[in-house]
């Protein structure tokens, strides 16, 4: 196992009302380790605290209690210098939900440059980074376009390029596909996968789409501000009833296998995260039973 990149211990956060009286706990002691290069999906229904979790990792919000360590630096229990906050934010990038609200400049390439410009990256490295980031998300042809004329998926890829140009170690996607159409979603998911596989970037994808979560190495399920489940997609999807209780549904194919097992068919239910896996399960079960049938017939 590679090194731990993000380490949290009993991380808590409460929102305070505008009048400063009542406190609403949003996160209730989350302890989790995320390793370098991992692709983790964070699942939960709206209001489960999953977005709060993401905002804590990026220091947009400050934890009320608990311990947060990112890449050997402990970020809780002391005042952080501006320098440290900047350092953290360049290492942990964040892509938001609404593609319109995170593009700053009126030209694509200038928007991608926004992050590195803030970091004071000098020429010619700045130009190289921008061009490289645009190429990585396959948007080089659009370098001089205006962002508002792009499709949702394209806008989101530009936003991702803007983060890549800061050369982060980890990128958090905060429901970045929720407002996209299927083709836009595919574009973004392929980009995420590519960043994880080819560039070794640690990925946290916060989502409520099960099919998306199935693409990750590992899934964290958050409910009522607590970490409810932690495991591989296969392990998580095997526990359909618990997921249902917290308002989540397993993908259709996994549901089929569950239903078949429930109705007395003794089919293997351990690898159910993709369509191909499920088809394989049914096929091998069929091969096994039809073989038995033939034996009996003989």
């Amino acid at each position: 196992m590679s090194d731990i990149y993000i380490h949290t211990e009993k991380l808590c956060f409460s929102y305070t009302d505008a009048d400063g009286k009542a406190e609403h706990p949003a996160l209730n002691g989350i302890s989790v380790d995320i390793h370098e290069g991992e692709y983790v999906a964070v699942l939960g229904h709206n209001g489960s605290g999953k977005s709060t979790f993401a905002k804590l990792l990026n220091l947009i919000l400050e934890p009320t209690s608990g311990k947060l360590v990112i890449g050997d630096v402990e970020l809780t229990g002391r005042e952080l210098s501006d320098e440290e906050v900047l350092q953290l934010r360049r290492n942990v990038g964040m892509v938001f939900q609404n593609p319109d609200n995170q593009l700053v400049a009126t030209i694509v390439e200038e928007d991608v440059a926004f992050g590195p410009e803030n970091l004071g990256v000098p020429h010619p490295e700045l130009r190289e980074r921008v061009d490289g980031a645009l190429a990585a998300v396959d948007m080089s042809d659009y370098a001089h376009h205006e962002p508002h004329r792009l499709s949702g998926g394209q806008k989101q890829r530009v936003a991702i390029a803007g983060i890549i140009a800061m050369m982060p170690k980890c990128i958090i996607f905060d429901e970045s596909t929720a407002m996209l159409d299927p083709s836009g979603r595919r574009e973004v998911l392929n980009t995420i996968q590519m960043l994880n596989c080819e560039h070794g970037i640690t990925v946290l994808n916060i989502t409520h789409y099960m099919n998306e979560a199935a693409m990750a190495d590992r899934i964290l399920v958050i409910n009522d501000g607590e970490l409810l489940m932690d495991g591989t997609p296969d392990e998580i999807f095997a526990q359909r009833e618990i997921l249902r209780r917290v308002g989540l549904e397993v993908p259709q194919c996994a549901a089929l296998i569950h239903e078949l097992r429930k109705s007395g068919i003794d089919i293997d239910g351990t690898k159910i995260s993709t369509v191909e896996d499920c088809a394989e399960l049914i096929a091998s079960y069929y091969a096994k039973t039809s073989l038995k049938q033939e034996e009996q017939d003989v």
Binding site: P182, S183, N211, P251, Q252, C253, L256, V275, E276, C278, A279, I282, A283, Y286
Partner: peptide
């Protein structure tokens, strides 16, 4: 270029496998 329901995809896969 439409996204077919996962379950319909599965059925197509099973048919491909000769079921």
């Amino acid at each position: 270029g439409l996204d077919i329901p996962q379950i319909t995809q599965l059925m197509a896969l099973l048919r491909e496998k000769g079921m």
